[in-house]
């Protein structure tokens, strides 16, 4: 899922400082699961903003609502009634949701979250990046461990000389992805695969190729 994290209160406050009535729109998708932009977080943020603004002598009226998904025009459309008479909208969705709202509505739309990465849950309250979304998966070559995003240098023929005691040179808390790959390949009896020189990656399927589009004609309607 998409992992996001709330921006500092002050930063959000500055984005809406000039507006009197603001809608706080949560998202019931990924950001609910990673506890950054669900119904609860939306209400907490709205309450905190009301209190802060009142203390500053600039009272804020808030409306809160949590959309099923902000990354789907169908659910964005349904926000019209909620949003129609507010001055600004704070979206607690990932960057996709913010853009979908901005595309659909003429209100001033601002993000409450920083969209961090595609990852999963390690333990309650801990999320970790696992996929670099490069558009051309190579996990078959690396024992199911992604060097694109888990190696700090995205090395395809690792590990580099900064790997020590299983950790990456950038931080003793960060696992060296290539150490993990090595161990996994060893366990699976496939170490010889690591002797093949992995050729340069074609990054055109990644972000470097410009905005990407994914089409499934068989499920298109009309």
């Amino acid at each position: 899922m998409i992992i996001a994290q709330q921006k500092p209160i002050q930063e959000i406050a500055e984005m809406i400082a000039e507006y009197k009535k603001v809608a706080f729109i949560g998202c019931a998708g990924c950001v609910t699961v990673c506890l950054s932009g669900g119904e609860k977080e939306t209400e907490i943020l709205a309450t905190a903003m009301r209190i802060k603004r009142k203390l500053e002598g600039n009272p804020l009226e808030t409306v809160t609502h949590t959309a099923t998904r902000q990354c789907d025009p169908e659910y964005v459309e349904a926000l019209e009634d909620v949003i129609k008479d507010v001055d600004a909208v704070v979206s607690l969705a990932c960057g996709v949701g913010v853009q979908y709202l901005a595309e659909r509505f003429d209100n001033w739309i601002v993000p409450a979250l920083n969209t961090n990465f595609a990852g999963g849950s390690r333990e309650h309250g801990v999320w970790e990046e696992n996929c670099g979304m490069c558009g051309n998966c190579i996990l078959d070559k690396t024992g199911g461990i992604c060097p694109i995003v888990r190696c700090s240098k995205s090395i395809l023929n690792g590990p580099c000389g900064g790997s020590q005691n299983g950790k990456c040179e950038i931080d003793k808390e960060v696992d060296c992805a290539w150490q993990l790959i090595y161990e996994r390949m060893k366990k699976m009896g496939k170490l010889e695969k690591l002797m093949e020189i992995e050729p340069p990656k074609d990054w055109s399927t990644s972000r470097d190729g410009g905005p990407r589009k994914s089409v499934r004609e068989d499920v298109m309607i009309g």
Partner: peptide, 18 residues
């Protein structure tokens, strides 16, 4: 509570519309 000085009033709270 500093909010009291700022004047307590709940009428500014829009609440949940859903």
């Amino acid at each position: 509570n500093p909010l009291k000085e700022a004047g307590i009033s709940n009428n500014l709270k829009g609440g949940d519309v859903t």
